[in-house]
Simulated assay, not measured.
Amino acid sequence: MDEELILTELDFKAVRSSGPGGQHANKTATKVELSFDVANSKALSENEKNRILKKLSGRINKEGFLKMSNEDSRSQHTNKDVVTENFLFELKEALKRPKPRKKTKPTKASKVKRLKAKKKKSEIKANRKDPLK
């Protein structure tokens, strides 16, 4: 993953932010929407593209664009920085390989403990029965 090349492939669009804000919100476009074309990216290998498409499928639309937005701040520049930071974090998380699971065997002590618990439980249940039958 070439982070510098990815940053050049990002498309930003500023739109009006929702919610209260008075006159300032009515005349400025502070919400920033980021879109990234995963399938046509030159910064990612085919393997990385497939991994991202699989892991971030909820954020990717039918055209293959990964969309993110931010409107937390009243500053467009701050929102742009935050959405870019979040995008890079999500990308890195999606590309992380999970650690392979190591198979382990139960210890001898845990086997004995389990068998003792089963024996005790069966004795409790056996004592519930009517002795005359």
Rank of each mutant, 00 (worst) to 15 (best):
S69F: 08
K55N: 10
K31M: 13
H24M: 09
R128M: 11
Q76T: 11
D37M: 01
V82K: 02
R74V: 08
L66T: 06
S57T: 02
A25Y: 08
S45V: 00
S57Q: 12
K120P: 00
E85F: 03
L5P: 03
R51T: 15
T78Y: 05
F12A: 10
D72V: 08
I52H: 00
K111C: 09
E63A: 14
S17A: 15
T28L: 12
L10E: 01
K49V: 00
K133A: 10
T104K: 11
A39Q: 11
S110A: 10
D81V: 09
K102M: 09
I6E: 07
N86F: 01
S41R: 00
K31W: 08
R101S: 11
A39V: 01
K62Y: 10
I6R: 03
I60D: 00
E9G: 03
K96V: 09
S57C: 01
E3P: 01
E71V: 01
S122C: 04
L91V: 10
L91G: 02
T8D: 08
S35K: 15
P131F: 10
R74F: 11
K13G: 07
N50S: 12
E85G: 06
V15E: 11
N127L: 14
T8E: 14
F12V: 07
R16P: 09
D37N: 15
P100S: 12
L95C: 03
A94S: 13
N70L: 05
E90W: 07
L44F: 11
L66H: 00
L5I: 06
G19C: 13
S17L: 03
I60A: 00
S41N: 04
E3I: 13
K31G: 05
G22N: 13
A29V: 03
V112Y: 13
F87H: 03
S17P: 04
I6K: 07
E71N: 14
S73W: 07
S75I: 11
R101Q: 14
P100R: 12
H77P: 02
L44M: 06
F89Q: 15
K67E: 05
L53N: 04
K96G: 02
E63C: 04
G19P: 11
F36Y: 15
S57F: 02
R16A: 08
E71T: 06
D2P: 07
K96D: 03
G22I: 10
V38T: 06
P131V: 07
F65L: 15
M1A: 14
P131E: 10
N61I: 04
S35E: 14
A109N: 07
L34T: 08
H77T: 08
A14W: 00
G58W: 01
V82N: 00
P20F: 07
V82E: 02
L132G: 07
A117Q: 13
E93Q: 15
R16G: 09
L34M: 07
S18V: 05
T107F: 05
R74H: 13
G19S: 13
S17E: 13
K62E: 14
T78N: 06
N61G: 05
T30L: 00
K49N: 01
L44C: 06
R16T: 10
A29C: 12
S57M: 02
